[in-house]
Simulated scan of single mutants.
Amino acid sequence: MSIQVGSVVEGKVTGIKSFGAFVEIAEGQTGLVHISQVSHTFVNDINDVMKVGDVVQVKVLNVEGGKISLSVKETQPKPEGSDRPRRGGNTNSKGPKSGGGGKKQSSGPTSYKTEGSNEPFNTMEDQLKEWAKKAGMV
């Protein structure tokens, strides 16, 4: 039987390692389910999710050089809200803004005004002193 990329097959877990599980899928052919492909949620220890002897549905992700990459999570529906952007990701689909060259140009020292005061401060030390004064620490 030829293994087709994209097909969903049943297999039996034959081995567990910290990085994933080995699953026998057909005629003695074994593939790897990487730990990142076990579940839609974070898996710290694969032993919490799978054990040797488990029968699982897997999707064939890749067949290359005799190595078969499998996924359990691709056979399961995505949890609700999983299509949210990740933290730190770029949510601007238009790409970087043009005209800036990617670097902010400095025009020299900047002075800031504290809340309720017209007096500027130039350093973090000045701001900390101001906050300490407002907090009654000085």
Results as ranks from 00 to 15, higher is better:
R86Q: 11
N62F: 00
G108V: 05
E80S: 06
K51F: 00
N47M: 11
G100E: 09
N47I: 15
K97D: 08
K78M: 13
N44Y: 08
K94Q: 12
V43G: 06
Q29N: 06
N47P: 07
V72Q: 08
S71Y: 02
V72L: 07
G31R: 13
I16E: 03
I16N: 01
T41P: 00
S69Q: 08
G101I: 08
Q57K: 15
V23P: 01
S98Y: 10
V23W: 01
K104A: 12
V38D: 01
S36N: 04
N92H: 12
K94T: 14
V60P: 02
E64V: 07
V58T: 10
F19C: 14
G53P: 01
S98W: 13
M50C: 12
E74Y: 06
R86D: 13
R84K: 11
K17D: 14
D54K: 03
V23R: 07
Q57Y: 06
M50V: 15
S82E: 06
K59P: 04
V43T: 09
K59D: 00
G99F: 04
V33E: 03
H34L: 05
V58S: 05
S18M: 14
S111V: 04
Y112K: 05
H34V: 02
V33G: 06
T110A: 12
I68F: 08
P96R: 10
A21M: 09
V13F: 01
K104W: 11
S71L: 08
V13T: 11
S107R: 09
V13I: 07
N47D: 13
S18L: 10
S117Y: 12
E74D: 02
V63I: 15
K103T: 14
Q37T: 04
D83I: 05
K78V: 15
E74P: 00
K73A: 05
Y112F: 11
V63C: 12
T110E: 08
V58C: 11
K17Q: 13
D54S: 10
V55E: 15
Q29L: 06
I25W: 00
S36C: 08
V63P: 12
S82Y: 15
A21E: 02
L61K: 03
F22M: 02
S82H: 14
G66H: 08
E64W: 03
G100S: 14
K94G: 12
F22S: 00
E27W: 08
T114R: 10
K51L: 07
E80W: 06
P85N: 11
Y112P: 01
T91V: 14
G102R: 09
P85K: 04
E64R: 07
S18H: 05
K67P: 01
T110P: 01
K73T: 02
D45Q: 12
G89S: 12
Q76F: 01
E115A: 04
R86Y: 05
G88N: 03
N92G: 05
Y112S: 09
I68D: 09
K17P: 03
D83R: 03
G102V: 07
G31K: 13
A21W: 00
G81V: 10
P109D: 08
G116F: 09
R86G: 11
K113C: 10
S117V: 02
V23E: 03
I25C: 01
Q105C: 10
S111M: 04
D48S: 08
K94S: 12
F19Q: 13
G65T: 01
G108Y: 07
Q29K: 02
T75G: 12
E27P: 02
V52K: 07
V43N: 06
V49K: 05
S98H: 14
N90K: 04
G81T: 02
E115S: 13
I16C: 00
T91Q: 11
G116T: 13
